[in-house]
């Protein structure tokens, strides 16, 4: 058996200790510790359902070993869902009906949030390139694009507080 160790990590801003064997992926580790908003879709980096951010960069948690996030900051969709100040992506997805079965949604939000930080006013091309690793089988992406653009507008106008 691979040896097990505890790793210290910030998850959604809260310090946690997760125990994991060396061969465990971050995906399995997070889900084992109750972070069920991180979804498993293919376990090989093809679908993006398991996307989380590590120090703000979206990665596929299925292709990340849990040990390698020691000392880092991990963000899941729950981290964008601060009850006082939820990320505008959430409201925009709701308004545009960009959610159908919802299984790809957490990964898409994680990818889209990073896009909007880098490119506050994304073009269709920017969105297409940013989401090409997030498969969605229900929506045809159209409403997702519209929601991301709207969230960008809200952020540019100063976020939720204004």
């Amino acid at each position: 058996m691979s040896s097990e160790k505890a790793i210290a990590v910030q998850i959604n801003g809260i310090g946690r200790e997760l125990s994991a064997p060396a061969n465990e992926t971050l995906l399995d580790c997070l889900r084992r510790h109750g972070f069920f908003e991180v979804k498993s879709g293919c376990e090989k980096g093809d679908c993006g359902a398991c996307a989380v951010q590590i120090d703000g960069e979206p990665v596929d948690s299925c292709l990340t070993l849990a040990w390698t996030v020691e000392g880092r900051s991990v963000t899941t969709l729950e981290g964008l869902n601060d009850t006082d100040n939820p990320h505008p992506l959430i409201a925009a997805f709701l308004e545009h009906g960009a959610v159908q079965c919802g299984y790809c949604t957490p990964g898409i939000m994680i990818a889209a949030e990073a896009l909007l930080r880098e490119t506050p006013e994304p073009s269709d091309d920017d969105i297409a390139i940013a989401l090409s690793g997030n498969l969605c089988r229900c929506t045809g992406y159209t409403k997702i694009f519209a929601a991301i653009k709207q969230a960008g507008e809200v952020l540019r106008a100063g976020g939720n507080d204004d």
């Binding site: 980096g45 996307a51 979206p58 940013a130 690793g133």
Partner: peptide, 12 residues
């Protein structure tokens, strides 16, 4: 790079 994998794979 624009057509290499998806965003997450590109970051890894």
């Amino acid at each position: 790079a624009r057509v290499f994998g998806g965003q997450m794979v590109r970051n890894q």
